[in-house]
Simulated assay, not measured.
Amino acid sequence: MTAANADGERSWYVVRCVFQWEAWEGTPYEERLTLWQAASLGEAIVRAESEARSYAEENGLRYLELAQCYHLATPGRPGDGDEVFSLLRDSHFGAESYLDHYFDTGHEHQGTTSE
Rank of each mutant, 00 (worst) to 15 (best):
S97G: 12
E43L: 01
E30F: 05
G76P: 05
Y98L: 08
L61N: 07
E57R: 12
P75K: 04
L33F: 14
D104I: 05
D80I: 11
S86P: 08
Y29V: 06
P28M: 02
F103C: 15
S11I: 03
Y29F: 11
L87I: 06
T27D: 00
I45L: 07
A44D: 07
Y29C: 09
T27A: 04
G26V: 08
S114D: 04
V18I: 10
R47F: 00
R32A: 07
W21Q: 08
S97H: 06
H109D: 06
F93M: 09
E83L: 15
L99C: 12
T74V: 06
R47E: 11
L35K: 08
E65S: 14
A38H: 10
Y29P: 03
T112G: 15
N59F: 00
P75L: 01
F103Y: 15
E30S: 15
H92Y: 08
C69V: 15
S114E: 12
R89D: 01
Y102A: 10
V15L: 03
W21H: 09
G79I: 05
D80P: 09
F19L: 03
P28L: 06
Q20S: 05
E57F: 00
S114C: 01
S11K: 13
T2P: 01
D100R: 08
S97F: 01
L88I: 11
V84W: 08
R32G: 10
A3Y: 03
W12C: 12
S97C: 03
D80E: 11
V46I: 05
W21V: 10
G60P: 01
A52M: 08
A67E: 02
S54D: 06
S97Y: 04
L33S: 14
R16W: 02
W24T: 00
E43V: 05
P28N: 06
S11C: 10
H107N: 11
A3I: 12
E9F: 07
D100V: 04
A3E: 10
L33E: 14
L35M: 15
A52S: 14
E9Q: 12
A48L: 09
S40A: 15
A52C: 13
R89V: 15
R53E: 14
G42T: 11
P28C: 03
Y102N: 15
F103I: 14
E43T: 07
E58Q: 10
L35W: 13
R77T: 02
E43M: 11
R89S: 07
A39D: 15
S114V: 04
T2I: 00
G42W: 03
E31R: 11
V18F: 07
G60T: 01
